[in-house]
Every structure is written in structure tokens, then in C-alpha cells.
Design a protein around this nucleic acid. Structure first.
Length: 413
DNA sequence: TCTGGGGTCCTAGGACCC
DNA sequence: TCTGGGGTCCTAGGACCC
């Protein structure tokens, strides 16, 4: 029995921009960009001029002089994307959301209820359009990789089904950049070897690719080009790290500024860890210096942490250690904190109780006390809002980006 | 005129252990 | 007298994705 095209990849088109055009009818049909300094998303009218997400605002304006910039309505993005995901869930419980606006579905168990995959895909597109008001593209194929490529080819507002007996025909002429994991650097390396299409990539010897791209990427890329993808659609899934960052134009590394920024970041990261009942043993800081260069420093401790004050202290130590190593005077443009090596908080508390009878008692006890204090703060914030209570220097610190945007990025998918 | 924020995965070297 | 093999963990950096 040959498997049919039972994996779908559903991807909302130019999502942020489409939402703005949905909410503000006078923006429909005109080139718009969400964002200001940086383009977060561009409407298809703007994309026709070459405007792309991630591009700086002035560059976008150069390409498209009539471009309208709109500020984002981030809560609406979350709300509408959740509505779309809920529609997807009506067709199968096997929905794997991989970002705010896209998901894989395995509909192999749904065909007896809803008909063949291409019919399900069509129904999804109709319902999203009718009930939410947004365009969505869908790819249907036998594997996740093919379905994902198919949805990209289907854009904007289209459906592409890849029948199992026509997969090679579909893949061969496409550019290598459509393969998952092939970005600008890899694309350039391949181009230097004369490899531009997936057909050329599939024909290249595996060991040559491994020496060109490294072992893992080489073999993964060969496998995808050869159309060998066995990944399953797995709903849920928990993240392995939690982080936050803050960019600011160009600042002298003044102790008070560094301390407040790290306190603010630690507050956000700690709060999210505690909300997920998680804690982590490894704390990593990233420092970006004014003209682009960035470094990371990390510390792995014996016991997991999630309290705001402990995170702040570790981060400060790492940052000042790294700054002390710099031989030239530096200016900062970004600071970030990330926590990894995560474990469940329940396990942490058990360990805390055990540790109180051992030599690690003092340090661990401090963390336990701070964790309890943070938990009370979290509670108050849940009831009275984020700004109701907090550490003084943290509460005062400025933010360069709307809070809604941060919360959107933080949202547990 | 350098541009946001949140992630994943991989590499490579060194420490340490058996 | 440098000579083996394998494994884990940690650190720092980089490519890539949305």
C-alpha cells in the first residue's frame, strides 16, 4: 500500500501584514510593512517591490517609495493565529504548530471522516478564509519536508498537492534554498560547486557534501535532496531553553545600565521559567558590541535556577568577566540572557529539600527563598498586572520594543 | 545605514573518566 | 616511553528558522 499525500503544511500568508489589512480595510491592496526600524512583515503588494521581512525600514522605503508603515497589533496576531490553529484541530488531533502562523498536520487517520487530503486542504483554506478572514497556503505530500516546500510553492493563497509518484519531478527543478536548513551561507558554498537545483544536489556524492558542509548538515541535506524524510508529526513538544534579549542603539558599559538591563531580562526569563514550572542549570549571556561582533559566555551550575535575583547575579558575573577580557574600549548594542539544561521545577523543589541536609545547603537555601519570593510576585502580577510589583531597578528600566511584541514571541505555542 | 526577539542544532576543543 | 580507544560534559561560536 503506497502512502498518499497525508501530511499537510499550512502556512498563513504574510501573516502580520494580512492581519493589518483585515483589520484596516483602507490598507487592502496597498504596499504595507509592519514595523518601523525593521520590517517585521510585508504585504504581497510590498513584496513585489522587493521588500522583505528583516530588512531595515529605510532600505524598504528605497525599494518602495509609497510603502506605508504600520505598527503591529500583536494581541490580534496571537488571537487570530490561535483561531486558525483551532480550525486545523477540527480535522485531526495530530497538529504540530511550529511557529505562530504555521503547522504540520497528519491527516492519515482523518480521510474516512473528511475525504482525501486534497479535499481536507481545500476545506481548511475555505474555513480559514470564511471564519477568520485570512489567506492561508497549504502543501500536501507524503513527507513533512515535501509538504513544507509545497506550501512555499503554493504561496500566495494557494494549494499544492504532490502525488507520491511525482515527487522527483516536483523537487528536481527547485532551488536548493527551499531545502530546510539551507540558508545564505550554505547556498553560497553550494553555488561555488555549481550546485543550484535540488536535482544537482541529489546527484552530488554524499561524502563530498559532508566535507563541504560538515558531517551533520551534509548528510541531512543529502537525505532531503534525495527525498528521504521520515520525520513524524509530533504535537506538543517542549522547548529546551528560555531566553530574552534587549537591543539598544549604542551604550557605554556603565555598571548601573548593565545591571538594570540584566535585571529586566532576568525578570522576564525567570517569570517564564516559573510559569512553565521549569528551571535550568546553564545560564548563557550574549553581548553584542556596537559594530556587530558578538560573544557568548555561559556558566553551568550544580543545581537548576529560576529565581530573578540568582539569574541576575550569574548574568552580571558573566558579563563583567567578558567585558574585562576586552582589550579595546567597547560600546554595547545588545544584551541577552538564556537558560538551558532545563528540568521540571517539581524536581528542583525535591532536590532543594534533599540538599538542605547536605553540604550544598546554604547556597541552595538562598535559591529556594528567592524562588518562593518570586512566586509571590508572580501571583500578584497575575492578579493585578505586570507592573503592580517587582524589583525596583527592574520596574524602572526602559524597554525599546512594545511589551505586546515580547509577549507574542514568548507565547507557548 | 547597519537591524527585533525567540528559538534549534551543530562544530570543535578541552577536561576528565574508564 | 609517548601510545590506544571511547565516552560525557562544558564552553564558545555560528548557521539557520520564524
Amino acid at each position: 500500500m503506497a502512502a498518499g499525500p497525508t501530511i499537510l503544511h499550512a502556512d498563513l500568508d504574510a501573516f502580520y501584514a494580512s492581519v493589518e489589512q483585515l483589520l484596516q480595510p483602507d490598507l487592502r491592496g496597498v504596499p504595507i510593512a509592519v514595523g518601523g526600524g525593521v520590517v517585521l512583515a510585508a504585504s504581497y503588494e510590498a513584496k513585489r517591490f522587493g521588500v522583505q521581512g528583516g530588512m531595515s525600514g529605510w532600505r524598504a522605503k528605497q525599494l518602495c517609495p509609497h510603502l506605508t508603515f504600520v505598527s503591529g497589533h500583536f494581541r490580534d496576531y496571537q488571537r487570530l493565529a490561535d483561531e486558525v490553529m483551532s480550525i486545523l484541530g477540527d480535522f485531526t488531533p495530530l497538529v504540530q504548530r511550529i511557529s505562530i502562523d504555521e503547522a504540520f498536520l497528519d491527516v492519515s487517520g482523518s480521510v474516512h471522516l473528511f475525504g482525501p487530503p486534497e479535499h481536507i486542504a481545500t476545506r481548511i483554506r475555505e474555513r480559514v478564509r470564511a471564519e477568520v478572514g485570512l489567506p492561508i497556503s497549504v502543501g500536501a505530500a507524503r513527507t513533512k519536508h515535501l509538504a513544507k516546500i509545497a506550501s512555499q510553492v503554493a504561496k500566495p493563497d494557494g494549494l499544492v498537492v504532490v502525488p507520491p509518484d511525482r515527487e522527483r519531478e516536483f523537487l528536481d527543478p527547485l532551488p536548493v534554498s527551499l531545502i530546510w536548513g539551507v540558508g545564505p551561507v550554505t547556498q553560497q558554498k553550494l553555488a561555488e560547486k555549481g550546485i543550484h537545483t535540488i536535482a544537482q544536489l541529489a546527484a552530488a556524492p554524499g561524502d563530498a557534501l559532508q566535507s563541504l558542509l560538515g558531517r551533520a548538515l551534509g548528510s541531512k541535506t543529502s537525505a532531503l535532496a534525495a527525498n528521504l524524510d521520515h520525520r513524524k508529526v509530533t504535537p506538543g513538544g517542549r522547548s529546551g531553553s528560555v531566553g530574552a534579549q534587549s537591543a539598544f542603539g549604542r551604550r557605554e558599559p556603565e555598571p548601573e545600565f548593565v545591571r538594570q538591563t540584566l535585571g529586566h531580562l532576568a525578570d522576564r526569563v525567570g517569570g517564564r521559567l516559573r510559569a512553565k514550572q521549569r528551571a535550568g542549570r546553564t545560564v548563557t549571556v550574549r553581548i553584542r558590541f556596537a559594530p556587530l561582533r558578538s560573544i557568548t559566555r555561559s556558566h553551568t551550575g550544580r543545581s537548576p535556577v529560576s529565581s530573578t535575583l540568582t539569574l541576575t547575579e550569574i548574568a552580571e558575573r558573566l558579563v563583567w568577566g567578558a567585558l574585562a577580557q576586552q582589550t579595546e574600549p567597547v560600546q554595547l548594542s545588545l544584551l541577552a540572557i538564556s537558560v538551558s539544561n532545563l528540568v521540571d521545577q517539581a524536581a528542583v523543589q525535591l532536590e532543594l529539600q534533599l540538599d538542605q541536609h547536605t553540604s550544598g545547603a546554604v547556597a541552595v537555601d538562598v535559591e529556594a527563598t528567592r524562588w518562593a519570593l518570586d512566586h509571590s510576585i508572580d501571583d500578584v502580577r497575575r492578579r493585578f498586572g505586570r507592573d503592580a510589583v517587582g524589583y525596583a531597578s527592574v520596574a524602572l528600566s526602559h524597554r525599546g520594543v512594545p511589551d505586546e511584541f515580547r509577549e507574542l514571541a514568548e507565547h507557548e505555542l
